[in-house]
Design a protein around this nucleic acid. Sequence first.
DNA 1: CACTCTCCCTGAAAGC
DNA 2: TGCTTTCAGGGAGAGT
Length: 274
Amino acid sequence: MPELPEVETLKVSLEKELLQKTIVNVDIRRPKLRYLLDHDLKSKIIGARILGLYRRAKYLLLELDNSHTVVIHLGMTGRATGQAENYHLQKHDHVALYLSGARKLVFNDARRFGMIYCLPSDNLMQHKIFASSGPEPLEEDFSAEYLLKKLKNKKVPIKTALMQNEIVVGVGNIYASESLFLAKINPLKLANSLSVDETNRLVEAVKKVLWQAIKAGGTTLKDFVDGDNKPGYFKQKLLVYDREGKACIACDSGSIAKLRQAGRSTFYCDICQK
DNA sequence: CACTCTCCCTGAAAGC
DNA sequence: TGCTTTCAGGGAGAGT
């Protein structure tokens, strides 16, 4: 389940594989992922060299030397791995980029929630998939001051607000629960009712959880592997997510509860999180 | 405008 | 054992 730390891990692991390589051919075995791929995707990227590798929110960006950027979102089950040239495509390998140096980048996605775009690099952040995105959680502009202001008119539960991309990008369902637990804030509490102190704690908790997950190479629940096909090691560090009915790690007396908010599972300890 | 719900998709796990 | 049902969730669009 790739969230921000997983995409960041992937980006770093793919740098050696991709930077300065030329895309010599493209194999599209299944053109419909979440959306139908651009009909001219091939012609836009064949022959181009990869100049830079970046991440924005949960999107991986491959900047090409022809003023286009390939934008990849892994959805729920997507993987992007570097393989040898003679690697035989397997089930759910939907797109392969053949690269100079006898390598290929293979995009595999069982559930096809992923997306691949090729967009003009100029004003990329003005494109609709990025235009209304909030700050990166690990950047300085995601601060308590910012968040307090942003939540002032939000009448939704804080858990729901944390997952809205216009407030902050890249905090998915797992890390939203984890962050609120660390900050000792009840996920049902309305976003506009957080105190200054709570907002401070929450911003710190989000940054801490994401940093730790990046350091561990991402969380692997079921599917995530990085560009070298290695799983992440953060799962054993999850404190509340997927621990319904188990003892709370912090207070020992309670057990982790599960509820549904805006169609998503939330895990929390109602003794620790007030 | 603010918010919630539904859909897309496959495979693992639970239920019968 | 084997079939059917449920659940997982990011983001877009429809619905309230």
